[in-house]
Design a protein around this nucleic acid. Structure first.
Lengths: 342, 342
DNA sequence: ATGAAAGCGCTAACAG
DNA sequence: CTGTTAGCGCTTTCAT
């Protein structure tokens, strides 16, 4: 099939017997156009199958209608959910998102940022902490492009952020465990280089303190997100510290692994089956990224910092920025939700 | 901070004491420019912090450097992996991707498609079957935009596709089970409306047939992706059909749930613990979207149709199309990989 | 090897 | 209410 000549507003104008500016006005719904002409123009658009070229439109001065997103690692559920929330919000407003990956350690952020700028985006969202937030912010301001971070942005305070309240989330779930009678609560999972984890651990500590409960640094165990390693880690932890009655897992993979570990230990310890071991001796709790399903069948309580809502919040925030321009930085904190099982 | 005036190639030309066309040539590395001027221009670009405006560049005739992706549901691991593979590939080639969501039932595909066209993308990828593949293909051809599907495209054969070999994947894993001595193999999970599942079930049937093994339609059980429901379903299935020795799970959530179900049943049946019940009586196998980690700790074998590789394959395919223009449709089939545990 | 000039498709004054 | 006109920033012949 031959490639049809690109249809432009000129063609439409010609077909409708009006001028290009009239067509443009109809398209953007601005100037007051008589219903009659509007009809004719729209009819012409319809029959010719015209699609407006947004590049040309934004070149002239308008907005491109595009937001750039730099995300650390799409395969992590947190980012997938966030991205979904953001695109949903923006698409509902007739905008689009440029998706780029900054790399797990932010190694590509800078380069992607420049590319986004050169593509003429109306705003940029950075999800996953880049080392050089300050530099990026300066760049963005220079170009007059709104910038929103989906995390704390290093030590900067004068930049928009939308983020979970990790500290509060930890406090909520720890308090829940305490109210259930637990006094000796351990922490499993995550790596100490994670800022999110650091905030959570902070909340955990503060709540123990508040209730005058003991804090042992050996009870805070690092572990990468692998079920196998989590299973081994919880086994070792409980063997060393048999008095621990509850374990808080840093994420759902850890929670799964921990559960496997408990099942295994229950058997190995020669006790009366798995369930009794599990229920009588150790309670699991966890952090998760989505409110539903994921941990469905595990008898544990978890707290979620809803990633999708964060994405939606970011969308809102950046739309506001685009519409209203500069004002003082705004920090939007999405509240955690406790989901209690059993 | 004041918004700096956007600097254009005019500014660069002025600073370097050359004409805009020279700058343009340096930028695109085309015409033969003397090393001396090249240096001067680049220096000017550097000091002014010039970033080329791709919108304007593509407007005049070149490519936009952007590929549009319409994905059904980013939160499903298959699509997240695919998207990651695709963006990685394209970013490595200096291109970008527009991410849009078509909706689980493809309800927005048509609209997103038009938007992508109006944004001037160089190509479009559709992941997740839209009802109206034919219509979209016609549209794409009309605009001269390459189109690649990450699935079968309805009944169309004259369109590029990159997809998993679901039938072969099922055959591989079923044959593996048979070689391990299993004769009575059941299927758990998925819903009958899924084309992917239909292809897999087809492979399953054909392999049973090949080895002269019995096929019972009651042994193919539908189940939504919920651990709880999978656990209940496998329990019921095994109670009704105690002779089943292996269960093939349609996805990893089902596999997890099935495992929980087995654990529970093992206890309920009053037998000697979980492991023995599991190992002696029922073997689990599963389909998964990524080769690593996900099912790490489950004692089961699985087969994966690597979604990330599919994404990379799509990237390759669409780049080739853009570079080489129209030729006959190409169907790229990504081979499954069997991952054997224990 | 480099410059001049004509647009790409669209918007936004400014006239009518 | 609608038409004229001048660009947006860049690429690309065609001269020089």
């Amino acid at each position: 099939m031959a490639i049809a000549k690109r249809i432009t507003i000129n063609d439409v104008a010609l077909a409708a017997g009006v001028s290009v500016s009239t067509v443009s006005l109809v398209l953007s719904g601005k100037g007051r156009i008589s219903p009659a002409t509007g009809q004719r123009v729209n009819a012409a658009i319809e029959t010719l199958g015209f699609v407006r070229n947004r590049q040309a439109a934004s070149l002239r001065g308008g907005q491109s209608g595009v937001i750039g997103l730099i995300v650390a690692d799409l395969c992590k559920p947190f980012y997938a959910e966030l991205t979904t929330g953001l695109t949903a919000k923006l698409e509902a407003e007739g905008r689009m998102v440029f998706l780029t990956q900054g790399g797990r350690r932010g190694e590509h952020v800078r380069q992607r940022f420049d590319t986004l700028v050169s593509q003429g985006v109306d705003g940029i969202v950075i999800a996953g902490s880049p080392g050089n937030a300050g530099e990026l912010l300066a760049q963005a301001q220079e170009h007059g492009i709104p910038l929103v971070f989906a995390s704390r942005a290093g030590y900067l305070d004068d930049v928009d952020t939308v983020r979970p309240d990790n500290t509060l989330a930890a406090q909520m779930i720890v308090e829940h465990l305490i109210h259930r009678g637990h006094q000796r609560i351990a922490w499993l999972g995550g790596v100490s280089s994670s800022l999110t984890r650091a905030e959570r651990v902070g909340g955990y500590c503060s709540m123990l303190l508040k209730y005058g409960l003991p804090f042992h640094s050996e009870w805070v165990v690092e572990c990468p997100a692998s079920q196998k390693q989590a299973a081994d880690a919880i086994t070792a932890l409980l063997r060393q510290n048999p008095t621990i009655s509850a374990v808080l897992c840093d994420n759902s993979v850890i929670a799964m692994g921990a559960w496997f570990g408990l099942v295994r230990s229950g058997k190995q310890s020669g006790e009366d089956g798995v369930e009794s071991y599990f229920e009588q001796q150790v309670t699991l709790a966890a952090f998760a990224d989505k409110p539903e399903q994921e941990l469905d069948d595990l008898p544990l309580t978890w707290v979620t910092t809803p990633a999708r809502e964060i994405g939606e919040g970011i969308g809102e925030q950046i739309l506001m920025r685009i519409a209203q321009g500069t004002s003082s930085a705004r920090h939007q904190v999405i509240p955690p939700r406790l989901i209690i099982r059993k």
